Computed example of a mutant assay.
Amino acid sequence: MALQQQIKNRDTNLLLGIGIFGILVLLYAPILLHWVDGWLHKTISIEHEYFSHGLIGLPFAAYLSWQKRKQWQRLPNKSHPLGIFLLVIGGIFYLSGVTEWVNLSLPTILTGLCLWFKGFPGIRLQGFSLILVLLATPTAVPYLIAPYTFPLQSFIATTAGFILNQFGMEVVVDGINIYVGGKIVEVAPYCAGLKMLFTTIYVSLMLLYWTGALASRRVTVWFLSMAIVISVIANIIRNTLLSFFHGTGKEGAFTWLHDSWGGDLYSALMLLSLVPLLNWLDQLLSPPPEIQPELEESATSD
């Protein structure tokens, strides 16, 4: 009888899981397809295009959750009241019809489901996947940050002007405007490298998790700090090239790097450089294998 009851409960949980998954697909498949189409063809709003890292982040989050399915099943069924609250809030967000709220309903409902089924142990198990979904969800954060990027814009313009001057070009920098050969290039808020910075941090978190380096606070802090610096430097170089191309009449190259696939290629190469950087930091900052057991024994005795 106990075995039959166990099989019955397992079948019931399986059917419930399939049913909830089906509902989520019906609710969010059109939204996710809209995001993907907008990110691929740049038909989505400028602010929401900043979250195009979701093209790799969302599949990775789904893969991690699938990989942990057996651990999920072994967790005891333990509902938390906060789960119901989040599910209600997520439903309200979805039904509101407001784009930002509808988008945010996805991570809200997913978090609510984890709490409803498994409580906080479920959150701990699926926490990184939920973070990836949240950080890939298009919101108005870039729009809210844009008014405060003027110092960064001015710094980029001044540095780009200085670099071009070193090559003998007559360049005048006025605030966020770079004048090259009588032609102006503006380092606008959306040219200040926020999109590249968002993507860099997101991809860096994925690399840290994938390699297991996220467990080391020193490696994580150093890697994220250096990745941010690399992102800023890469954006300065990009704006310098754009100013050079526009000022010297090379409009084809300007368009290729600014509006076409050249910008994507440039960003991809910059992101690839993070892989050897993480490997180097991990080897440099992680303790040698022969002293790791000693550290573990010391931590146990404490």
Rank of each mutant, 00 (worst) to 15 (best):
M1F: 12
N13G: 12
I18A: 15
I23H: 11
V25N: 10
L27W: 08
P30E: 06
I31C: 06
L33A: 14
V36W: 08
H41D: 13
T43A: 06
F51S: 03
H53F: 06
L55H: 05
P59R: 11
F60N: 01
A61R: 01
S65Y: 06
R69H: 09
N77K: 14
K78F: 10
S79R: 11
H80I: 02
L82F: 06
L87C: 10
G91V: 03
I92H: 06
S96H: 05
V98K: 10
E100I: 14
E100R: 08
E100L: 11
W101P: 00
V102D: 03
N103A: 08
N103P: 09
I109V: 14
G112V: 00
L113G: 05
W116Q: 13
R124Q: 14
G127H: 03
F128G: 02
L130N: 02
L132I: 04
L134N: 01
T139L: 05
L144Q: 14
P147Y: 08
P147G: 09
I156Q: 03
I156K: 01
I156D: 02
I156T: 09
A157T: 01
T159Y: 04
G161L: 01
V173I: 03
G175Y: 04
G175K: 06
I176E: 11
N177G: 04
G182D: 12
V185W: 05
A192N: 07
Y202L: 05
V203M: 04
L205K: 02
L205C: 13
W210C: 01
T211I: 02
W222C: 10
L224N: 00
M226C: 06
M226R: 07
M226A: 07
A227H: 00
V232C: 07
I237P: 02
N239F: 09
N239D: 12
S243Q: 04
F245L: 07
F245P: 00
H246T: 12
G249E: 04
T255R: 13
W256R: 04
W256L: 12
W261K: 11
D264V: 15
D264H: 14
L265V: 15
S267M: 10
L269D: 10
L271Y: 06
L271E: 02
L272D: 06
V275H: 01
P276K: 07
L277H: 00
N279L: 15
W280H: 13
L285C: 04
S286T: 11
S286K: 03
E290W: 10
I291H: 05
I291G: 07
L295F: 08
E296G: 06
S298Y: 14
A299I: 12
T300K: 15
S301C: 10
S301M: 13
D302S: 12
